[in-house]
Each structure stands twice: as structure tokens, then as C-alpha cells.
Amino acid sequence: MFGSRTDREMVTCIACGERLSRSDAREYDKHGDRWDRRDKTFEYVCKACFGEMSRHPRGDLEATLDAAGAGETDRETFLEQFRELSRSESE
């Protein structure tokens, strides 16, 4: 009748930045365990970006992004930390 809470909630696609209703988005869990919902917050991807996502294993990419401070530090610091972490993993 009035729609569910998720129909009214707006989210932002982490890939393209589009604002859309949560019901029109796909949940993305950077830790790879979207089924365990206890104490978890999700990020969202619009259907178009979700369709373009690679389904190939990414190894420890999310862990490296998290360790480098993705979304929590300025761009220059993040890139420097990501480069250093990536070098140490490939050695």
C-alpha cells in the first residue's frame, strides 16, 4: 500500500555516484559476505554498474583498499599507501 522502507530509502551507487532508491540497487559487501547481516552496513551499486562488474576473483583487493584508507583519507595519501601495499604484496 505505502511501499516498504527500502522503496523510500535513497542510496548512492559507489561506482558512478547515481542516487537511486534502495530497492533499485544491488547490495555490495566489500568483505564478500553479504549473507551475514549482523552489525553490517552495505554499500550499493546501481543495476547498470552491477551488470558491468567483473565476477572474477579479486584476491585481497578489498583488504588492500581498506588498509590503504579508501574513503577515509585524502586521494594523495590513499594512492601512496595503496602503491606501497601493492608493492609489498607482489614481492
Rank of each mutant, 00 (worst) to 15 (best):
D36K: 07
F42H: 15
C13P: 05
I14N: 05
P57C: 05
V45M: 11
C49F: 02
L20P: 01
D60M: 10
E18T: 13
A25Y: 02
W35T: 11
T41H: 11
L61Q: 11
E27I: 04
R37M: 06
R55Y: 06
R38V: 05
M53D: 09
E43M: 01
Y44A: 03
Y44K: 01
E9W: 02
C16M: 04
H31C: 08
C16R: 01
E18N: 05
G32K: 10
M53R: 09
C16I: 05
A25C: 03
R55E: 15
H31K: 11
F50E: 08
G51S: 04
K30V: 00
R22M: 15
H31S: 12
Y28R: 04
V45E: 09
S21D: 06
R22F: 08
Y44W: 15
W35E: 15
L20S: 05
C16F: 03
D24M: 08
T12A: 11
S21Q: 12
S23C: 13
G59D: 09
Y28I: 00
E18C: 07
A25G: 02
L61Y: 10
E43Q: 08
F42G: 09
C13Y: 07
D60F: 08
R19N: 13
D33T: 11
E43R: 00
C49R: 02
R34Y: 06
R22Q: 15
E43A: 08
S54M: 01
R58D: 14
R37H: 07
M53G: 06
K30N: 06
L61M: 11
H31E: 14
V45I: 15
R55A: 14
S21E: 10
R22I: 06
V11I: 05
M10I: 12
D29H: 10
D33V: 13
R22L: 14
L61E: 14
C13R: 09
R19A: 13
D24R: 12
R34D: 11
S54V: 00
K47G: 00
K40Q: 15
K30D: 08
C13D: 08
T41M: 06
H56V: 13
C46Y: 04
E43W: 05
C13K: 09
D24N: 12
T12Q: 14
R19P: 04
H56F: 07
H56K: 11
G51T: 01
G51I: 00
R34Q: 07
M53L: 15
R55T: 14
C13A: 07
L20T: 07
E9F: 03
T64W: 03
A15G: 01
K30C: 03
L61P: 06
E62P: 06
C13T: 07
S23K: 10
S21G: 04
W35F: 12
L20Y: 01
R58A: 15
D60I: 10
C46P: 03
S23E: 08
K30R: 13
P57N: 05
K47A: 15
A25P: 00
A63T: 09
A48W: 01
R26W: 02
D36C: 04
C46L: 06
R8S: 12
W35Y: 14
A48P: 05
M53Y: 04
T64N: 09
K40T: 15
G59P: 03
E9L: 06
F50A: 14
G59Q: 07
R38M: 01
Y44R: 00
D60V: 10
S54R: 00
R58I: 13
H56Q: 12
F50M: 07
R58L: 13
Y44C: 01
M10T: 10
E52G: 02
